[in-house]
C-alpha cells in the first residue's frame, strides 16, 4: 500500500508536465481549432535555444527570455501557414499538415541539436521542493503544476469574462461570422499561436531537466499532452489539467505491478478510452445536419 502511494506520488512530476502541456494543447485547439501535432516540437525549439545560449555562456534569464521569444516566433510561423493556407480546410487536412510539419521540425531539430547528444538543461527554478511519501517533488515540478493551474484559471477567466475572450470564442466557433463582425480574425489567431508557443516553451523548459534531454524525445511529449487534452475532449481546461496529472500518476502506479508493466505504455491509452467513451456516451450523431 505504501509503495503504491510512493509510486503514485513519484508519478506527480511527470503528471505536472503532462498537465501543463495538455492545457497548452486545449488552449490552441479551443481558440484556433487546430490539432497541433507540432505543439511540443515548437516548444522544444524554444527550450533548445535557451539551453544552447546557456551553454555558450549567456546568463540564465536572458537565455530563457530569448528562448520563449523564439518558441513564440516558431509557433507563429506555423500559425501563419495554417491561417493563410488552411483556414477553410477540414480537420483531417489540418491534422495532416501539422503531422507533416512535425516530421519536418523533428528532422531539422535533430540535425541542429546533434541527434541524441544530451544537453545540460539548467534548472530554471532552483530549490529542493517538498517531500511527500518519501518522494521529493522538485520545485520545477511544483512550478509546472502551479503554472498549469494558473493557465487553466487565466484561460477560463479571459475566455468567459473579457471582451477579447468573447472575440476569441467567436473566432474559434464561427471564423467567417467573426470576420464579418469586424473582429480582427487573423491578428487574434496569430496572437493565439504566439501565446501558445511561448507557453509551451516555458512548459518544456520546466520539464526538460527530468526528461530525456534530446530534441526527438521532447517533441514526442505531444502524445501524453494530447492524452491529457483528450480527457477534457479538447474543450475543458480543468479536465486537461486533472487528466494530465492523472496520467502521470497512473504511469507511476503501473511501474509497481511487475506483471503489468511490460504493457504499461498501453495503460494510459486504455484509461483515456474508458474516460472518453463514458463522457461521449450521449454523442450519437456527427455535427453535420
Amino acid at each position: 500500500m505504501n509503495s503504491l502511494l510512493t509510486s503514485a506520488v513519484a508519478g506527480l512530476s511527470a503528471g505536472g508536465a503532462y498537465a501543463i502541456l495538455g492545457v497548452c494543447v486545449v488552449f490552441t485547439y479551443r481558440l484556433v481549432s487546430v490539432v497541433k501535432f507540432t505543439a511540443t516540437a515548437l516548444g522544444a525549439i524554444g527550450a533548445f535555444v535557451m539551453v544552447i545560449m546557456t551553454e555558450m555562456g549567456y546568463p540564465l534569464l536572458p537565455s530563457v527570455l530569448v528562448g520563449i521569444l523564439v518558441g513564440a516566433l516558431a509557433s507563429t510561423a506555423v500559425g501563419l501557414i495554417t491561417t493563410i493556407w488552411f483556414s477553410g480546410s477540414s480537420q483531417s487536412i489540418k491534422a495532416a499538415v501539422t503531422a507533416a510539419l512535425l516530421v519536418c521540425i523533428i528532422a531539422m531539430g535533430q540535425r541542429l541539436t546533434g541527434g541524441q547528444q544530451p544537453r545540460a538543461f539548467p534548472d530554471i527554478v532552483g530549490g529542493a521542493g517538498i517531500q511527500l511519501a518519501g518522494v521529493t517533488i522538485t520545485a520545477a515540478s511544483l512550478v509546472a503544476i502551479g503554472f498549469a493551474v494558473f493557465l487553466t484559471v487565466a484561460a477560463e477567466q479571459v475566455l468567459n469574462r473579457t471582451r477579447m475572450g468573447l472575440q476569441l470564442r467567436a473566432l474559434s466557433e464561427r471564423p467567417m461570422a467573426a470576420e464579418l463582425l469586424g473582429i480582427p480574425v487573423r491578428r487574434l489567431a496569430i496572437g493565439v499561436w504566439a501565446a501558445s508557443g511561448a507557453m509551451t516553451s516555458i512548459a518544456l523548459m520546466l520539464v526538460a531537466p527530468l526528461r530525456s534531454p534530446d530534441f526527438g524525445s521532447l517533441s514526442l511529449l505531444v502524445v501524453p499532452a494530447f492524452a491529457a487534452a483528450l480527457i477534457g475532449s479538447f474543450k475543458s481546461f480543468r479536465a486537461a489539467l486533472v487528466g494530465g496529472i492523472l496520467i502521470g500518476v497512473i504511469e507511476g502506479l503501473a511501474s509497481v505491478f511487475v506483471g503489468l508493466n511490460q504493457y504499461r505504455a498501453a495503460v494510459p491509452f486504455l484509461v483515456i478510452l474508458v474516460v472518453l467513451l463514458w463522457s461521449q456516451r450521449g454523442a450519437q450523431w456527427d455535427e453535420a445536419r
Binding site: S3, T6, S7, A10, G11, S13, A14, A17, Q116, Q117, P118, G134, V135, L210, R211, S212, P213, D214, S217, L220, L221, G248, E251, G252, S255, V256, A265
Partner: peptide
Amino acid sequence: QGDLTPYLIRARDAGCDAVFTNQVEPG
C-alpha cells in the same frame, strides 16, 4: 520515453548499492 522517477524510488527503497541500465546517452 517517460519519467524515471518511480524506478529510481523503487531502486532506492529496495536498497540497491549499484544500479545498472542499458540506457543510451540522453537516458
